[in-house]
Simulated assay, not measured.
Amino acid sequence: MLSALGNKYSAEILCAAGTPKSAQALSEDVEIPIATCYRRIEELVDAGLLTCEGRRLSEKGRRTNIYRRTLDGIEIDFSDDNPVYSKKRRTEAKNRLQDQLDD
């Protein structure tokens, strides 16, 4: 998890992914190249910090994956021999409410 968070643009992608977005939309929001965005998305999905919520048609008529972050916060405590993580997970209810507010 730390290595995924430590990569450039990962935190920005997670911030932008509070609502479901395509890789293209995330790339535009964070202002990074699409190839870099796809690499960060893959790392964040593998770390369990981002999830693919399904597929939608893009403006060009292509099927594209839609991503959303899986948590709203994370705290890391380094005071012990090993880091201890505390995550604030996003609830499905919060996701639905956010989706309604954005419509």
Rank of each mutant, 00 (worst) to 15 (best):
A16R: 01
L5A: 14
L101Q: 13
T70H: 05
E28I: 09
S79Y: 08
E59F: 07
I41T: 03
S79T: 15
L49M: 05
R96H: 08
L101N: 09
A17H: 03
D77P: 02
L26S: 10
R69V: 03
V84F: 05
D102K: 08
I32P: 02
P20F: 06
Q98I: 08
D99M: 08
L14H: 09
R39Q: 09
D29N: 10
I76W: 05
R56C: 07
C15E: 07
F78E: 12
L101V: 15
L101H: 10
S79V: 08
D102W: 04
K60N: 06
D72P: 01
Y38R: 11
G54Y: 15
D77E: 08
K87Y: 15
R63D: 03
E43H: 05
K88R: 15
L26Q: 09
L44K: 04
Y85S: 03
Q100T: 05
N7S: 12
L2D: 15
E43F: 03
N82D: 11
E53W: 08
E42H: 03
R96L: 10
E28G: 03
D102T: 14
G73D: 07
A17S: 04
E42D: 12
G54M: 13
A93S: 12
K88L: 15
L101D: 10
A4W: 11
A35W: 13
D102V: 10
N95Y: 06
D72L: 10
T70G: 05
R62W: 00
K94G: 01
A47T: 13
D99E: 14
G73A: 14
T70E: 07
R56A: 08
S27M: 03
N82A: 06
D72N: 14
G54C: 13
F78T: 14
L44T: 04
M1R: 11
V84I: 12
A17F: 00
C37V: 01
S79H: 05
E28P: 00
I66S: 04
Y38G: 02
Q98C: 03
A23H: 11
R62V: 00
E92Y: 05
I41H: 00
G61C: 02
K8G: 00
E28Q: 08
T19E: 04
K21Q: 12
A17I: 03
D29T: 07
A11W: 08
L71Y: 05
